[in-house]
Structure formats: C-alpha cells, structure tokens
C-alpha cells in the first residue's frame, strides 16, 4: 500500500490525520480513495479531472508531469506540493 501524506492545509478535513496507507496504483486512485474516506476533500486536490491548479505530485521524491495518470507503487510515498518552475 502506498503511503500518502495529507497536505498540512487539508489536515483539518482529515481529523488531523497526516498520513494514510492507500491501495492505489495511480494518483487518480489515490485521490479517489482519499475523497471516499473524507468527502470534504472533494475539489481540493483535483478539479475537472485534473490535478488542482498550482499543484504537483511528488512520488518517492520525483515530481511527475503525468498528474492524475502518474503511477504509484505499492511502497511509494506520495506528496502533493506546489508546482515549481525555474529561471
């Protein structure tokens, strides 16, 4: 099961839970599982079947450009972080 970290700004919606184990093989499934457990999360991590604007997903330290399609391994650690660019 993948380990998913709840962004600090959303922990008030997850009864303070910071981190959960989730059965999922894509980021879409990760978010679906979180939304199923905490319906208040709907619309916060994804909007119109895309990762929310300004958000990126980090899987095992690597920032994926595949958004909801990104693969998640059984031992993966998943974080939702601000998108970064560069100069």
């Amino acid at each position: 099961m993948a380990t998913v970290y709840i962004p600090a700004a959303l922990r008030e919606l997850t009864e303070g839970v910071e981190c959960v184990k989730v059965e999922a093989s894509t980021v879409r499934q990760v978010i679906a599982a979180l939304e199923a457990r905490w319906p208040a999360l709907q619309g916060r991590l994804r909007q119109q079947d895309e990762l929310a604007a300004g958000l990126a997903v980090s899987i095992d330290g690597a920032i994926s450009s595949r958004g909801l399609l990104a693969r998640v391994g059984p031992e993966s650690e998943v974080h939702f972080i601000p998108a970064i660019g560069g100069g």
């Binding site: 962004p7 700004a9 922990r11 916060r44 909007q47």
Partner: peptide, 22 residues
Amino acid sequence: TESMGQLSDKPSNVSRHIHFEQ
C-alpha cells in the same frame, strides 16, 4: 485567496496561501 483548492469569500490581493507543517 486560494488555499489548497478552496477560495476565500471575498476578492483579495492575496491570491494564494501555502501551508506546510511537519
């Protein structure tokens, strides 16, 4: 003001709030 997908009630010059905690 957007904070992890949620918008403030009123328009604001503050367009985003980011929060990390560990």
